[in-house]
Design a protein around this nucleic acid. Structure first.
Lengths: 242, 242
DNA sequence: TATCTTTACGTCAAAACTACGCAAAGAATC
DNA sequence: GATTCTTTGCGTAGTTTTGACGTAAAGATA
């Protein structure tokens, strides 16, 4: 059994005074590495329990700005690409007592609300640029492959599922390139699409379609070190008519 | 100048005690009548000022349930088709002093928050079934054609624009038929699509595409009273493989 | 009866998507 | 260094989807 947690008590007291009650932000930070889609998770101090990064909105702060702030602190990046994908507003979202016991949260003595409505944001980031950084209540922050995610705290497994479904649906409207480094090969872009969609694509057709979109610019370099034919590098051409 | 409003004071006092602070729901209730897309608006007591219907979430109430409750009270319908389309969370959404003066809201003396984050829902309803019903603070509730909407209170003109843009984008994913009576003609369905999209469609291609979807069932009756050839009535076939 | 508009269905060409062929590039193996 | 293997980069051909438009029958009006 874990003991009383004075740091957490202070944190929640502060949040209770400065932030909006009943409302929180949960962030699904997507990255792409070694042909796998990953999300950034946090391990709570003194436990083996993991959760999504999250936080609260200050009383005079724009919600989008709060989301940026929260995600910036975990990734070390500024100007993240964010998308608000769902509001999790069920009256009972998870077993609160059980969850709070697991992470040793001091419910007593803090003016905190009975339930929380969570605004779900996902971020699309360049995996290689992220410096995973734990927060006040956690001691480890690292990437997890989507298919290896353990049972998370709160309803965070569900939130990740909804985020992924949303990303899948909007795949063609979202600036997916934020998940890749500036220069990348077509096969890399294809693996990304395949991982998000969950099924394989035909390399030849993918190549053709991507080229036809006119939004890619071929660089003169090729990706070295591959066991086979070295593919060209490309980058997104943001202004195809410039 | 309008005087102090004790009824509103009581209402906001009650909301302040029973509902979640800083958070509200705004509802864009879409209907379709005489080939025009309409939204339900409310006129505030003793003023000529109009706004969207809205309300607050009770402390132990699911957000979706709250939205249902709020919209049900204005329409007299239960089981509305609702969709949560955006969170309006800017720190400053409109000129609060000006707005509250217009509708004579008693800011003083009530424990109310400085800003409100609003969850935007749109509803798709059968215009003919709605009984527009004002609420506690308003004295008139009626349909407005989208192209005749006046300057509204708060940021509600903006909210309607975002709702329409969202509906447009998701036109093919949303159960648009909720905007029509049970039986309708293909041209009526076409007008609905045209009104949402904002541009005309070719009747012959629309017919073909709609038929090909397999989700319509032709009834034996035709729509009488038209000045020209009487079109068949159709209804949505919810279980095309049953 | 003639005229006019609209529905209900058809035709045809352009565009998009899909399956698949194949040569050249590069690494590993013989 | 030749052979084998996989992968890239580009091509072809068939199918499906989309879009422009033709038209006969229905129903009201002149």
């Amino acid at each position: 059994m874990i003991e009383y947690n004075p740091a957490a008590a202070r944190y929640y007291q502060e949040v209770s005074e400065q932030c909006i009650h009943y409302l929180s932000i949960d962030g699904v930070i997507f990255g792409f590495h070694q042909n796998q889609l990953k999300v950034l998770l946090l391990r709570w101090k003194g436990t083996e329990e993991w959760s999504l990064p999250g936080g609260f909105i200050r009383k005079a702060e724009s919600v989008d700005v709060a989301a940026q702030r929260i995600m910036q602190e975990r990734t070390g990046l500024n100007e993240l690409y964010l998308h608000q994908f769902h509001v999790f507003g069920e009256a009972v979202r998870y077993n609160q007592e059980e969850t709070w016991r697991k992470i040793n949260l001091p419910i007593q003595g803090v003016n905190w609300s009975e339930r929380t409505i969570s605004l779900g944001y996902y971020a699309l980031v360049d995996h290689s640029k992220v410096v995973p950084t734990p927060d006040f209540l956690t001691e480890e922050c690292r990437w997890w492959s989507l298919d290896q995610i353990p049972a998370l705290l709160f309803d965070h497994n569900y939130i990740i599922n909804v985020a992924l479904a949303s990303l899948r649906k909007q795949l063609n409207d979202q600036p997916i390139n934020h998940l890749l480094p500036e220069a990348f090969t077509i096969p890399e872009l294809q693996r990304l699409h395949e991982t998000i969609l969950g099924y394989p694509l035909d390399a030849r057709n993918f190549y053709k379609k991507t080229m036809a979109s006119g939004s890619l610019e071929r660089l003169s370099e090729r990706r070295a070190g591959t066991p086979h034919k070295a593919p060209y590098l490309y980058r997104f051409n943001l202004r195809p008519f410039a």
